[in-house]
Amino acid sequence: MRSPLSEANGTAVLLLPELPIHISELVGRAYLTRGALLWAGTRVLAGIVLLSASGNPVRLHPAMAASLVVVVFILSYLDLKRRRETTLLHDLGIPAMLVVAIATIPAAFAESAIGLAGRLVR
């Protein structure tokens, strides 16, 4: 049975069930890092806007946090297009939208964590 994360030839490979797609650790890490930076930048900008409107720059309304994740998804996609990485990804056998989704993981994870922490502190 295929596991979500397995070792193949000394390389950690993410195996997606049913789909003949795998993403090497290096590619996955590269897009996770990019997504984390995009989220951090977007978060700072959102914080500045909220601060100027006398709001809480850290604790966002759940709808706003979800919107922020969507914004990071869109920015990741636009960044991919701007850098013209689609052909390289396809040569690697990786759908472009999959790496966009991977780049959104840090935003989704971080916003969930901040939201959860906010509830616990309250």
Binding site: A8, N9, T11, S24, L26, V27, L92
Partner: peptide, 10 residues
């Protein structure tokens, strides 16, 4: 990027 290709396809 060459390493990405190597990892992806062994």
């Amino acid at each position: 990027q060459l390493e990405m290709i190597r990892e992806q396809f062994n």
